[in-house]
Design a binder for these strands. Structure first.
Lengths: 305, 305
DNA sequence: TAAACTGTCTGATTTAATCAGACAAAAGCA
DNA sequence: TGCTTTTGTCTGATTAAATCAGACAGTTTA
């Protein structure tokens, strides 16, 4: 069935109908006139009917030809619109954006970006899956995943949006009990709140001016959800390690105090990962741009703070 | 514009959507799966958008893909219907048949065939142009021309349907005044009614058993329309030469008498001529078949009579 | 009558489509 | 964990299609 009709020939025929001659049709299409003659001939052959009566001087459509022209124009217009719609979708965001992000990063960073995104593209809809669990982008039909930390699998394409800093914090009350010269070397003897979601729960590499201290922590509490661990730290259970975006506000607000401020922990990355696809829809590209801008802005804020 | 969209690729994409895999789509289409992969890839390239997310195991349509599938199906259905309609028109008569025929042949032979044609194909419409004038088939958009006598131009395609016999007739009263042994040698001295439409008004070649007589006639009246000349002969003005189909009835009815019955004049042909076209519509073919059948039947009748 | 223009044809060339087979990745099975 | 099967894609060679430039006969115009 597919072999019998070659839809590409329609445009040759309709152009001849519109221009009234093979020569001018060839002109308009930018091909040799022999091509138009050949293609229309093949079309007639496929249909088993004559569409155009041609003398050396004049081209006249047959009844079939007039009939078929109307049908062909509907097809071509429909095709043009379909192609245009999709091609434009590659330029102008449309439809629904499904994204996933870690819960804390989602609430702190992604949510505001979503607001900006929806304001910029009011026709869009967003489905956000905020979960620390790493889900399969293809199975879940997710357009965009945001991963914080270190990328595990790399079958997906990814783009680095920014950097996160791991920060050791404690509640002001807990911090007050610490010795003034506290440093990572005493880490094992302190009370920690562990976060099962973050990699390296077991060992942490502190560094400061070339010195490095690799130490194991001794969590008195381990939570499998970041917000829960965070709440434990706020409550003064112990020290916690969290990404900068999670603690910024509470440090500024005085609800948390930074510990070991002179020391740094390994930095992680903030990545946008995409399902395997040759072309990225505009809706995804637009969101990633906004998110990257927010990340840049946040990085400047962290640098200042 | 034409270069940017290759409509033939649509069927590859839609088949993948329907079968859910490139392999089974290739199966259904009867091509190598590499072809499906390549064609869908090119389609996505043309659109600048990804339609299908493919892992090695599963094919999932993107939102664009689902959107485009609906559009593509509309296009393909429309195309199939358009092709089918025209192709069927090449098989089943439809539309309007425009034909032209000489006035007398039209009224005597074509009109009854038209009745049979419309009975066989009630959906058809016929526009008949009965006129001895030879009209241009292309300019007048005529599907079928019927020419009696000798074909002049041959830029059109033609098919011979039958033979006409030129017959010398006179009214019974006029015939009664003729000598019993009248023969073509005395033709110049007799009163003739000329018909400007028929070729050879000036000279006629009579033959009988090998003998031939080439003689000029001496018309006392020349008419430019066959029916007029015919009426003159009926009225007893003189001898006339008419095709067999025109005089058969009146000879049987006794209103005319055949003269020089032993002699024959050059036979002419009855031709169906068609505008230049590669394929002949079914509506034309069907009519010509009926006409040819009528001609064969008439030929048998003439032979008997 | 000459010149311009029509649609078609021809042979050569270029481009696209296609195939068979190989391949890595993923899923199912042992 | 290995092994097999199945997935979509890739590769190089082959085949088919499209295309072009130029020639041609028929028609119209000047």
């Amino acid at each position: 069935m597919a072999d019998l009709l070659n839809l590409n020939r329609l445009v040759y025929f309709t152009t001849v109908m519109e221009t009234g001659s093979f020569t001018s049709a060839a002109d308009r299409l930018g091909v040799a006139k022999a091509v138009v003659s050949h293609q229309v001939g093949r079309l007639e052959e496929e249909l088993g009917a004559t569409l155009l009566q041609r003398t050396t001087r004049r081209v006249t459509p047959t009844e079939d030809g007039r009939l078929f022209y109307d049908r062909a124009m509907i097809i071509l217009r429909e095709a043009e619109s379909a192609y245009g719609e999709i091609s434009q979708a590659a330029v102008e965001p449309s439809g629904t954006l499904r994204l996933t992000a870690p819960l804390d990063y989602g609430t702190r960073v992604v949510a505001p970006v979503m607001a900006a995104y929806l304001k910029a593209y009011p026709q869009m809809r967003v489905e956000a899956i905020f979960d620390d669990a790493v889900s399969n982008l293809v199975d879940e039909q997710i357009d965009l995943g945001i991963r914080v930390g270190w990328l595990a699998d790399s079958s997906n394409q990814a783009r680095r949006l920014g950097t996160i800093q791991q920060i050791v914090v404690a509640s002001p009350a807990f911090a007050a009990d610490l010795p003034a010269d506290a440093n990572p070397n005493q880490a094992r003897s302190l009370a920690w709140v562990g976060n099962a979601q973050l990699r390296g729960v077991g060992q942490w590499l502190f560094s400061k001016d070339g010195d490095t201290v690799l130490t194991e922590l001794n969590p008195v509490v381990v939570c499998d959800k970041s917000p829960a661990a965070y709440a434990c730290v706020i409550a003064g259970i112990g020290l916690g390690i969290f990404p900068d975006y999670a603690v910024d506000e509470d440090i500024v607000g005085g609800r948390l105090v930074r510990i070991f401020a002179q020391w740094t922990l390994p930095t992680g990355g903030i990545h946008a990962v995409f399902p395997p696809a040759r072309f990225r829809p505009a809706k995804v590209r637009a969101f990633v741009e906004l998110l990257a801008a927010a990340e840049r802005k946040r990085a400047r804020g962290v640098a200042r703070g």
